[in-house]
Design a protein around this nucleic acid. Structure first.
Lengths: 226, 226
DNA sequence: TGGACGTGTTGATGCACATCAACCGGCTAA
DNA sequence: TTAGCCGGTTGATGTGCATCAACACGTCCA
């Protein structure tokens, strides 16, 4: 049962999953529950079997910046767990969630027994690093409108369809705003602007990409507008 | 000769360094030279033997945000090289620099031969991930004054001394500003404010930490001030 | 010796975004 | 049914920091 969830996690084989299975502990969290809290140690790498979870940083004033929305089948907490260092973000269940915690010790054990597994973990960590860096870049070098355009462009990819004109926001606009590092009011205004310009259409959480070219242009590093 | 530089890199042994040595290629760059450019593929992981290098993101409008100042003995480009994906930042020599490039293939080869090495690499990557995430947190949840205070606090640690009252900025104030994600004008004003408040003293690049307690307070997640 | 350039400071102004506040429509629950 | 709340929109106002511009100080070099 756990094997099903962790196999295919980092391109793992059945045998590798089986080896980790005994180090897994199931966990479940109702909607809204704090699964992991900033500053605490994680028992291991967390794998989300069902539901959806947000990872978020909290600023001094209490408002939150969402780092990532974790979907079923994905994992989080690798660096924290492997280093046995305090967690940097809060993990909060957006819906009722079932997860599995793979004990750090189990991972290290398999690491020193299985070369292929070691390689997979290295690649997975490098990928994590790479995407975090991409986010840091977006956060520091782009302004709100650019980040939004980039996000809207990325949605079809995430939802499987390529080039689809209609996409559905996976979470509430408030959460999307926090994911893009802005307030919901600002997101609302930016979306309004895009619809006024005829770039997108919008009804509730459904977004219609009417003019992909101009959306790309907005996402790219452009300036100047009449 | 190369061994000397790469041994002790990720807690590597002499033997491990020797195994990598044949995959190394020396590189040297005069001050100001672009060592690696955003969007290109890196031949391997880069190790800085001598000099100092800045890694920086460039925004649409051309101004730069410094990610990290690489000191002699440190390495960079691991995620990029291991994934064989395009580099996300420019690497520019701040002073004349000598470096070594360890070919990706060599690392993977050693990875599947040496369990301890695999473990070291996993830990090193996890650490990289962790620190990048820390920077993302600082960039998105703190304001300029907080980031500056945190940076000033961290300087004594980096320079070996603990609790030293006098520290030296390792690079020009313009670069420090870019490292903190602000413009040099803003940095100048913030430093001026801190000296006016008696928290620090400053002459050229020398900074005197007069009131560590208040500096900490400024770095921490506080608000309210009269 | 005297530019010319690079680094840093200071002031005036502007802009992106947050904040505050009011309001709307659609849920759920008494 | 109505009360309440959550998610979202819209407007008025505030603010952190960038931008623009001018100037002061070094250092290098003709």
């Amino acid at each position: 049962m756990p094997m099903r969830a962790i196999a295919g996690l980092w391109g793992m084989s059945q045998a590798q999953a089986a080896a980790l299975a005994e180090h897994c502990r199931p966990l479940s969290a109702p909607r809204g529950e704090v699964i992991a809290q900033r500053g605490t140690l994680l028992p291991g790498v967390l794998v989300l079997c069902a539901g959806s979870v947000k990872l978020c940083l909290r600023s001094a004033e209490g408002d939150e910046r969402v780092l990532r929305i974790v979907a079923a089948g994905e994992s989080f907490g690798e660096p924290t767990a492997l280093l046995r260092k305090p967690c940097l973000y809060d993990a909060i269940a957006l819906t009722d969630a079932k997860l599995l915690s793979i004990a750090t010790a189990g991972i290290f054990a398999l690491l020193s027994r299985d070369r292929r597994f070691a390689r997979s973990v290295v690649v997975a960590l490098a990928e994590r690093s790479y995407t975090v860096l991409t986010e840091l870049e977006a956060a520091t070098t782009q302004r709100g409108a650019q980040r939004l355009a980039g996000y809207l462009e990325s949605l079809p990819r995430r939802q499987g369809a390529r080039g689809a004109a209609k996409v559905l926001l996976p979470v509430s606009k408030t959460v999307v705003a926090a994911l893009l590092g802005m307030k919901k009011e600002t997101l609302s205004r930016l979306l309004r602007q895009l619809t006024a310009d005829g770039v997108i259409g919008m009804t509730r959480r459904e977004i219609d990409i009417l003019d992909p070219a101009r959306l790309s242009a907005a996402a790219a590093h452009e300036r100047a507008r009449a």
